[in-house]
Simulated assay, not measured.
Amino acid sequence: MLTFMFPGQGAQHRGMGAALFEQFPRQVEQANAILGYDLPALCQQSGPKLNDTAFTQPALFTVNALAEMSVRRTGVEPDFVIGHSLGEYNALLSAGVIDFETGLQLVKMRGELMARQNGKGTMIAVLDPDLAQLQALADELSPDFCIANDNSPKQLVCAGSVAAVEGASRRITAGNIGKVVPLKVSGAFHTRFMADAAAEFRQFCARFSFKPGRLPVVSNLSARPHDGRDWPERLAEHLTRPVQWRQTLAYLRQQGPMLFQEVGPGTVLTTLAKANLTLH
Protein backbone atom coordinates (compact mmCIF):
# COMPACT_ATOMS: atom_id res chain seq x y z
CA MET A 1 0.00 0.00 0.00
CA LEU A 2 1.00 3.60 -0.56
CA THR A 3 0.37 6.81 1.40
CA PHE A 4 0.86 10.26 -0.10
CA MET A 5 2.11 12.81 2.47
CA PHE A 6 1.63 16.54 1.83
CA PRO A 7 3.83 19.02 3.74
CA GLY A 8 2.61 22.12 5.51
CA GLN A 9 3.99 25.49 6.47
CA GLY A 10 7.75 25.41 6.95
CA ALA A 11 8.43 23.44 3.76
CA GLN A 12 8.36 26.56 1.58
CA HIS A 13 11.57 27.80 -0.02
CA ARG A 14 12.62 30.23 -2.70
CA GLY A 15 12.24 28.75 -6.18
CA MET A 16 9.80 26.04 -5.19
CA GLY A 17 7.47 24.87 -7.94
CA ALA A 18 9.38 26.48 -10.82
CA ALA A 19 9.29 23.40 -13.06
CA LEU A 20 5.70 22.61 -12.04
CA PHE A 21 4.49 26.09 -12.98
CA GLU A 22 5.74 25.43 -16.52
CA GLN A 23 4.00 22.04 -16.67
CA PHE A 24 0.59 23.29 -15.53
CA PRO A 25 0.00 26.79 -16.97
CA ARG A 26 -3.80 26.53 -16.80
CA GLN A 27 -3.78 25.82 -13.06
CA VAL A 28 -1.24 28.61 -12.49
CA GLU A 29 -3.48 31.05 -14.36
CA GLN A 30 -6.44 29.92 -12.24
CA ALA A 31 -4.41 30.36 -9.04
CA ASN A 32 -3.25 33.84 -10.04
CA ALA A 33 -6.86 34.87 -10.69
CA ILE A 34 -8.06 33.61 -7.30
CA LEU A 35 -5.14 35.02 -5.34
CA GLY A 36 -4.86 38.33 -7.16
CA TYR A 37 -1.09 38.18 -7.60
CA ASP A 38 1.60 36.40 -9.62
CA LEU A 39 2.24 33.17 -7.71
CA PRO A 40 5.36 32.04 -9.64
CA ALA A 41 6.88 35.49 -9.06
CA LEU A 42 6.14 35.22 -5.34
CA CYS A 43 7.89 31.86 -5.14
CA GLN A 44 11.00 33.36 -6.74
CA GLN A 45 11.30 36.13 -4.13
CA SER A 46 14.02 36.03 -1.52
CA GLY A 47 12.27 38.53 0.78
CA PRO A 48 9.97 37.86 3.74
CA LYS A 49 6.73 37.72 1.75
CA LEU A 50 6.96 34.00 0.95
CA ASN A 51 7.26 33.32 4.70
CA ASP A 52 4.24 35.47 5.54
CA THR A 53 1.47 33.05 6.56
CA ALA A 54 -1.08 34.80 4.35
CA PHE A 55 1.08 34.07 1.28
CA THR A 56 2.82 30.87 2.39
CA GLN A 57 -0.34 28.82 2.70
CA PRO A 58 -1.83 29.34 -0.79
CA ALA A 59 1.64 29.07 -2.34
CA LEU A 60 2.33 25.73 -0.66
CA PHE A 61 -1.14 24.40 -1.38
CA THR A 62 -0.70 25.17 -5.06
CA VAL A 63 2.80 23.70 -5.32
CA ASN A 64 1.68 20.56 -3.47
CA ALA A 65 -1.32 20.24 -5.77
CA LEU A 66 0.77 20.58 -8.93
CA ALA A 67 3.32 18.11 -7.56
CA GLU A 68 0.54 15.56 -7.08
CA MET A 69 -0.78 16.16 -10.59
CA SER A 70 2.72 15.45 -11.88
CA VAL A 71 3.00 12.23 -9.86
CA ARG A 72 -0.42 11.01 -10.94
CA ARG A 73 0.54 11.51 -14.58
CA THR A 74 2.90 8.57 -14.08
CA GLY A 75 0.00 6.34 -13.06
CA VAL A 76 0.85 6.20 -9.35
CA GLU A 77 -2.24 6.13 -7.13
CA PRO A 78 -2.22 6.17 -3.30
CA ASP A 79 -4.29 4.05 -0.95
CA PHE A 80 -4.26 6.68 1.82
CA VAL A 81 -3.55 10.43 1.92
CA ILE A 82 -2.34 12.57 4.81
CA GLY A 83 -1.15 16.14 5.19
CA HIS A 84 0.65 17.95 7.96
CA SER A 85 -1.42 20.95 9.11
CA LEU A 86 -1.97 22.98 5.91
CA GLY A 87 -1.06 19.86 3.93
CA GLU A 88 -4.32 18.23 5.02
CA TYR A 89 -6.08 20.45 2.47
CA ASN A 90 -4.02 18.79 -0.25
CA ALA A 91 -5.03 15.42 1.16
CA LEU A 92 -8.67 16.50 0.87
CA LEU A 93 -8.01 17.61 -2.71
CA SER A 94 -6.31 14.31 -3.54
CA ALA A 95 -9.26 12.37 -2.15
CA GLY A 96 -11.80 14.44 -4.12
CA VAL A 97 -13.44 16.03 -1.07
CA ILE A 98 -12.69 19.46 -2.55
CA ASP A 99 -11.59 20.66 -5.97
CA PHE A 100 -8.56 22.84 -6.70
CA GLU A 101 -10.49 26.12 -6.81
CA THR A 102 -12.31 25.44 -3.55
CA GLY A 103 -9.12 24.35 -1.82
CA LEU A 104 -7.28 27.47 -2.89
CA GLN A 105 -10.08 29.75 -1.70
CA LEU A 106 -10.14 27.95 1.64
CA VAL A 107 -6.39 28.13 2.26
CA LYS A 108 -6.25 31.75 1.10
CA MET A 109 -8.78 32.71 3.77
CA ARG A 110 -7.17 30.39 6.32
CA GLY A 111 -3.78 32.01 5.80
CA GLU A 112 -5.22 35.52 6.02
CA LEU A 113 -7.11 34.75 9.23
CA MET A 114 -4.10 33.11 10.86
CA ALA A 115 -1.86 36.01 9.83
CA ARG A 116 -4.23 38.41 11.61
CA GLN A 117 -3.38 36.66 14.88
CA ASN A 118 0.15 38.14 14.79
CA GLY A 119 1.51 38.64 18.27
CA LYS A 120 -0.97 36.28 19.95
CA GLY A 121 1.69 33.74 20.80
CA THR A 122 4.69 31.89 19.44
CA MET A 123 6.06 28.37 18.92
CA ILE A 124 9.18 26.32 19.61
CA ALA A 125 10.42 22.93 18.47
CA VAL A 126 11.73 20.63 21.19
CA LEU A 127 14.25 18.10 19.88
CA ASP A 128 15.05 14.79 21.58
CA PRO A 129 12.50 15.54 24.30
CA ASP A 130 11.83 13.67 27.49
CA LEU A 131 8.21 13.07 26.52
CA ALA A 132 6.90 12.48 30.02
CA GLN A 133 8.54 15.58 31.48
CA LEU A 134 7.49 17.78 28.57
CA GLN A 135 3.89 16.60 28.83
CA ALA A 136 3.96 17.23 32.59
CA LEU A 137 5.22 20.77 31.96
CA ALA A 138 2.50 21.37 29.37
CA ASP A 139 -0.13 20.09 31.81
CA GLU A 140 1.21 22.43 34.50
CA LEU A 141 1.27 25.52 32.28
CA SER A 142 -1.94 24.81 30.34
CA PRO A 143 -3.73 26.62 28.72
CA ASP A 144 -0.97 29.16 28.12
CA PHE A 145 1.53 26.53 26.92
CA CYS A 146 0.82 23.24 25.17
CA ILE A 147 2.05 20.65 22.69
CA ALA A 148 0.82 21.78 19.26
CA ASN A 149 2.45 19.20 16.95
CA ASP A 150 3.31 15.68 18.12
CA ASN A 151 5.59 15.00 15.17
CA SER A 152 7.80 12.14 16.35
CA PRO A 153 9.48 10.83 19.50
CA LYS A 154 12.41 13.00 18.45
CA GLN A 155 10.52 16.23 17.75
CA LEU A 156 7.56 17.99 19.29
CA VAL A 157 6.37 21.53 18.65
CA CYS A 158 5.01 23.54 21.56
CA ALA A 159 3.08 26.80 21.48
CA GLY A 160 1.46 29.37 23.69
CA SER A 161 1.70 32.94 24.88
CA VAL A 162 5.08 34.59 24.38
CA ALA A 163 5.67 34.82 28.13
CA ALA A 164 4.68 31.19 28.76
CA VAL A 165 6.79 29.86 25.90
CA GLU A 166 9.82 31.86 27.01
CA GLY A 167 9.43 30.60 30.57
CA ALA A 168 8.90 27.02 29.45
CA SER A 169 11.94 27.24 27.17
CA ARG A 170 14.15 28.17 30.11
CA ARG A 171 12.79 25.28 32.18
CA ILE A 172 13.19 22.79 29.32
CA THR A 173 16.82 23.80 28.85
CA ALA A 174 17.65 23.93 32.57
CA GLY A 175 15.99 20.58 33.23
CA ASN A 176 17.57 18.82 30.23
CA ILE A 177 14.08 18.02 28.95
CA GLY A 178 15.14 18.66 25.34
CA LYS A 179 16.81 21.07 22.95
CA VAL A 180 14.74 24.19 22.28
CA VAL A 181 14.65 25.66 18.77
CA PRO A 182 12.59 28.88 18.35
CA LEU A 183 10.38 28.87 15.25
CA LYS A 184 9.88 31.84 12.93
CA VAL A 185 6.09 32.00 13.14
CA SER A 186 3.65 34.82 13.81
CA GLY A 187 1.32 33.02 16.22
CA ALA A 188 0.54 29.99 18.36
CA PHE A 189 -0.97 27.76 15.68
CA HIS A 190 -3.06 24.72 16.62
CA THR A 191 -3.92 26.17 20.04
CA ARG A 192 -6.72 28.12 21.70
CA PHE A 193 -4.96 31.31 20.54
CA MET A 194 -6.45 30.63 17.08
CA ALA A 195 -10.03 30.62 18.43
CA ASP A 196 -11.01 33.94 16.82
CA ALA A 197 -9.64 32.81 13.46
CA ALA A 198 -11.43 29.47 13.82
CA ALA A 199 -14.80 31.09 14.48
CA GLU A 200 -14.59 33.23 11.36
CA PHE A 201 -13.18 30.38 9.29
CA ARG A 202 -16.09 28.11 10.28
CA GLN A 203 -18.53 30.61 8.77
CA PHE A 204 -16.44 30.92 5.62
CA CYS A 205 -16.22 27.13 5.13
CA ALA A 206 -20.01 26.86 5.37
CA ARG A 207 -20.27 28.57 1.96
CA PHE A 208 -18.70 25.59 0.20
CA SER A 209 -19.77 22.08 -0.75
CA PHE A 210 -17.73 19.02 0.20
CA LYS A 211 -17.96 15.66 -1.54
CA PRO A 212 -17.52 12.13 -0.18
CA GLY A 213 -13.86 11.16 -0.41
CA ARG A 214 -12.73 8.45 -2.80
CA LEU A 215 -9.69 7.74 -0.59
CA PRO A 216 -9.26 7.65 3.20
CA VAL A 217 -7.93 10.96 4.55
CA VAL A 218 -6.38 10.38 7.95
CA SER A 219 -7.18 13.34 10.18
CA ASN A 220 -4.56 15.41 12.02
CA LEU A 221 -7.01 15.67 14.92
CA SER A 222 -7.89 12.05 15.52
CA ALA A 223 -5.22 10.06 13.65
CA ARG A 224 -8.12 8.16 12.09
CA PRO A 225 -9.86 8.57 8.71
CA HIS A 226 -12.27 11.50 8.47
CA ASP A 227 -15.91 10.45 8.67
CA GLY A 228 -16.90 13.00 6.02
CA ARG A 229 -19.34 14.88 8.26
CA ASP A 230 -19.55 18.55 9.26
CA TRP A 231 -16.51 19.77 7.34
CA PRO A 232 -16.83 23.45 8.41
CA GLU A 233 -16.61 22.39 12.06
CA ARG A 234 -13.73 19.97 11.44
CA LEU A 235 -11.70 22.51 9.44
CA ALA A 236 -12.26 25.23 12.04
CA GLU A 237 -11.34 22.86 14.86
CA HIS A 238 -8.15 22.02 12.97
CA LEU A 239 -6.87 25.53 13.76
CA THR A 240 -7.16 25.16 17.53
CA ARG A 241 -6.22 21.53 18.19
CA PRO A 242 -2.84 19.78 18.00
CA VAL A 243 -1.54 17.85 15.01
CA GLN A 244 -1.30 14.15 15.92
CA TRP A 245 1.34 13.28 13.32
CA ARG A 246 3.13 10.53 15.27
CA GLN A 247 -0.21 8.85 15.95
CA THR A 248 -1.22 9.21 12.29
CA LEU A 249 1.85 7.32 11.10
CA ALA A 250 1.28 4.67 13.78
CA TYR A 251 -2.28 4.15 12.50
CA LEU A 252 -1.10 3.77 8.91
CA ARG A 253 1.61 1.34 9.94
CA GLN A 254 -1.10 -0.83 11.49
CA GLN A 255 -2.92 -1.10 8.14
CA GLY A 256 -0.23 -3.40 6.72
CA PRO A 257 2.97 -2.99 4.68
CA MET A 258 3.06 0.69 3.77
CA LEU A 259 5.18 2.91 1.57
CA PHE A 260 5.20 6.65 2.22
CA GLN A 261 5.77 9.21 -0.54
CA GLU A 262 6.15 12.91 0.19
CA VAL A 263 4.42 15.03 -2.46
CA GLY A 264 5.51 18.67 -2.41
CA PRO A 265 8.64 20.71 -1.78
CA GLY A 266 11.34 19.44 0.54
CA THR A 267 11.73 16.29 2.62
CA VAL A 268 10.44 17.39 6.03
CA LEU A 269 7.79 14.67 6.23
CA THR A 270 10.11 12.00 4.88
CA THR A 271 12.50 12.79 7.73
CA LEU A 272 9.65 12.62 10.27
CA ALA A 273 8.43 9.33 8.80
CA LYS A 274 11.88 7.80 9.18
CA ALA A 275 12.13 9.08 12.75
CA ASN A 276 8.80 7.39 13.58
CA LEU A 277 9.09 4.19 11.62
CA THR A 278 12.66 3.25 12.48
CA LEU A 279 11.73 3.14 16.16
CA HIS A 280 9.30 0.25 15.65
Rank of each mutant, 00 (worst) to 15 (best):
M114I: 13
L252S: 02
G36K: 07
E68I: 00
T122G: 01
D38E: 14
P40I: 10
W245L: 08
R202Q: 14
Q133W: 05
D38G: 05
L60I: 08
E68K: 03
G103E: 06
F189M: 12
E22W: 01
L127A: 12
A197S: 12
P7G: 11
A195F: 04
P129A: 07
R229V: 11
P225G: 00
L66Y: 01
G178V: 04
A11I: 08
A148V: 09
H190V: 07
L235M: 13
V165R: 00
I124Q: 14
A136T: 08
A198T: 07
Q255F: 06
Q117W: 09
L239M: 07
K108F: 05
P143M: 13
T270Y: 00
Q27K: 05
H280W: 13
Q155G: 02
G8T: 03
D144L: 10
K120E: 14
A206Y: 09
S46A: 14
V162Y: 01
F61Q: 01
T240S: 04
G266K: 03
D130L: 05
S70L: 08
M109L: 12
P216S: 08
F6E: 10
S152Q: 03
P129V: 08
T74C: 14
L131F: 06
K179C: 00
R241F: 03
W231V: 11
K274I: 12
L39F: 02
E200A: 07
G75L: 06
R246A: 14
V165K: 01
A115W: 03
S161F: 03
G178D: 06
D227C: 06
F204T: 05
H84V: 06
W245M: 03
R72E: 15
P265C: 06
